[in-house]
Every structure is written in structure tokens, then in C-alpha cells.
Design a protein around this nucleic acid. Sequence first.
DNA 1: GGAGGTCCTGACCACCCGGCCAGTTTCGCA
DNA 2: TGCGAAACTGGCCGGGTGGTCAGGACCTCC
Lengths: 123, 123
Amino acid sequence: MSEHNAPEIVLSLEIDDSALADRLAALLGSVAGLRLAAPGEQAAAAIVARDPRVMPADIALTQRELDVLALMAEGASNKMIARQLGISVHTVKFHVGSLLDKLDATGRTDAVAHAARRGVIEL
Amino acid sequence: MSEHNAPEIVLSLEIDDSALADRLAALLGSVAGLRLAAPGEQAAAAIVARDPRVMPADIALTQRELDVLALMAEGASNKMIARQLGISVHTVKFHVGSLLDKLDATGRTDAVAHAARRGVIEL
DNA sequence: GGAGGTCCTGACCACCCGGCCAGTTTCGCA
DNA sequence: TGCGAAACTGGCCGGGTGGTCAGGACCTCC
């Protein structure tokens, strides 16, 4: 063996799309020096889905809405956001309303979850 | 929609560990039917690092708390959670209180964000 | 048999949230 | 010059939220 110190790379396949997962498993199963992890096994890296719909859908949020959204994700209340941004609570509620609208959310918690899912913000 | 005859799977390699990334790139570069994504290119899946430290930090949440947490992440109100789980609003508030406590959060939005950050839930 | 944990329920209360109405200013663009 | 978008502010109000009391039922462990 020429590669005496090259340990197998263990990859965990974490793909919901079974068709894609099967194809990947078939392709990767025969690659030397690489192995798919058994269920629960600790892997060096994981293969995860990269949904194409995630990126292009960066909704048109204004700078102020992004400011408010970021603070919302920190769990800040409208009052705290107002203080932080130096504006009134009414204005914060105005921006939150716009965010709920644009993110198609029912409340601030839902808005943060949606934004995180779409990659608008990073948790 | 994308059911072409060339089922080439595009993978983006998102590994900080350059040594590991190089080895993976070398191993995967010669696999037929599979291609590594160019920088910025849209990929079907990504290979990401699996930090072992991620898992052990799963805070001790009861099953019921996980149920409530999952619904909270969907933006559900206490009333909706109660209806969904077949329990009273009071009990939901009880579990939410426990979650805020265990997750060191100031509110439900903060709790969901913390849980997502720690990998307790998946957004 | 207690001790402790989980799960469940009730009531009360201060506060927050989101939606509604209304208005203002400032800016860029046609 | 008018027109819209963005940002900002106010009042009002129904309902939601979080905290604090209280209690009971069920289970396991010592």
C-alpha cells in the first residue's frame, strides 16, 4: 500500500430526496478511501441537500427591515428594538408588520424561522 | 422538471479543513456521474463538516417540550399548540415556561432561535 | 413510604403583540 | 411637478404572552 497513512473518510448521507440519496450512495459506495457512515456513526463530513429555491428567493427587504429582523432574531421585544434603533415602538411595529407580510409569517417567531430557512438571516 | 438524461450530480464542497477538502476533492473528482460545483454554482447537495461537538450539547428536553418546541418553531400560538396536542393552554404555557428556562431564552422567538442554533430543532 | 420528576390543569395579572385607523417627511424617478 | 416608495409617528383595541400562585395524577428510584 502506497497510502499507508490515509484513513478512510467517513461521510454521512443526509438527504431527504431518496432518489438523489440512492444515486449518491451508488456513486460513492465504490469510491476507494471513502465510506458512507452507518446510522448514528460519527462522520467527518455530511452530504446535505442544497435546495435551489433557497438562494434566489432573497426577498426584497429594506435595510430598516433587515435591522429589525436581526434584532427580532435575538429575541428582542418591540420596545428593545425601538430603543436600539432610536425610533418609536410604533415604527418598529410598522416594520414588523411589513416583515410578517413579506415573509408570509403569522408572527415574529414564524418570521424569524422563515427568514432563517430562506437564508435571509443567519442564526 | 430537471429530468434530463444526464444525471450528473453537482456537489459543492464546503469544508474549512483544507486537508480534508483536498482529499475529498481528489477522491470525488474522478467519480463519473458526479461533479464538484464551481464557486457560486448551484449544487444539488453540499458536503459540510460534521463537528463532533455539535451533538453532545443537546439540552435535556422532555418529549413534551420537544413537541411544543417544534410547533413553536412553526409559529403556532399557545392556543394552536394546545389544540394540536390535545392539552390545555395552561399546560402549553407550563411547557413553554420550562423551555424558556432550559434554553435560557427571553421569549418564544428567542427560544426557537437558541434551539435552532444548538441543533435541537431543524428549521 | 417518601422524594423527585414529568405531565397536566386552573386562575390571576401586567405586559406585549399585531392589526386597524390616521398622519408626517424625505427621497428619487418619470 | 407630480407620484410612489420608504421611513417614521400616533391612538386604539382585541387577543396573545409570560410570570406567579395554586393544585392533582402518575411514574421511578432509593
